[in-house]
Design a binder for these strands. Structure first.
Lengths: 107, 107
DNA sequence: CATGGCTTGGACAACTTCAGTCCAAAACTA
DNA sequence: TAGTTTTGGACTGAAGTTGTCCAAGCCATG
């Protein structure tokens, strides 16, 4: 699997590998067929709960799915200012490190 | 200036370095005093237009302010799932590179 | 070509989120 | 104590989102 694969593409690939129609997967996850189709096209976002269901249903790592989903969001947010997207992510990393540190000390 | 400085902290530092009260800066930028106070506390987000005004008013790099602001957003979004925040940013970088590539080819 | 299931996407209502403002209380200064 | 600054609660209107319903398009197979 490529790393630059959107959450929707991953879910679609998993479904097609099992040769299941949207309807069946949607039923299993208790969502609308149309909703699932949109998630696969990245035009609707899965809730965290739904990501868990995907992981359970397809038997894949929930953590990986969460990373795939969140990195989509983050990447697109960074691309809001395309010219500085790379720098934004670099600085964000420093901030994350800083925030994690702070949290530790608060405990 | 530290790199892990929030947008609000930067703005506040700039204002205090000039010894200006919130009111004066707010008037210059044509926003509510309370709004500016909240922006300095990172509890309200500046619009892009406002970021431009900040840069112009304080005579600092607009790009730097945009990076500071967006990286705040991105860092906090990544921290929504603290346990995978680092990985999220790493994958997001790959996705950004990928998206930029795609855009180039489309031209 | 007709019937069936599959996929796609527009329209919509319910809901959530958020910027921006107003106002009053608290904090500070002189 | 008066005047100024800072803080934050409450609120409104605007914008965005979610999840669903429905209809049209698609593509197999009989």
């Amino acid at each position: 699997m490529q790393t630059s694969t959107s959450f929707g593409e991953i879910v679609k690939a998993l479904r097609e590998a099992r040769q299941l129609p949207l309807r069946e997967v949607a039923d299993a996850l208790q969502i609308d067929t149309s909703m699932l189709g949109k998630i696969e096209k990245n035009s609707r976002r899965p809730s965290r709960k739904l990501i868990e269901k995907f992981a359970a249903f397809f038997g894949v790592s929930e953590k990986n799915l969460r990373v795939a989903f969140l990195s989509d969001l983050v990447a697109h947010q960074a691309m809001d200012e395309e010219d500085v997207a790379g720098e934004v992510l670099k600085v964000a990393e420093e901030k994350v490190a800083y925030l994690k540190n702070n949290k530790k000390r608060e405990q």
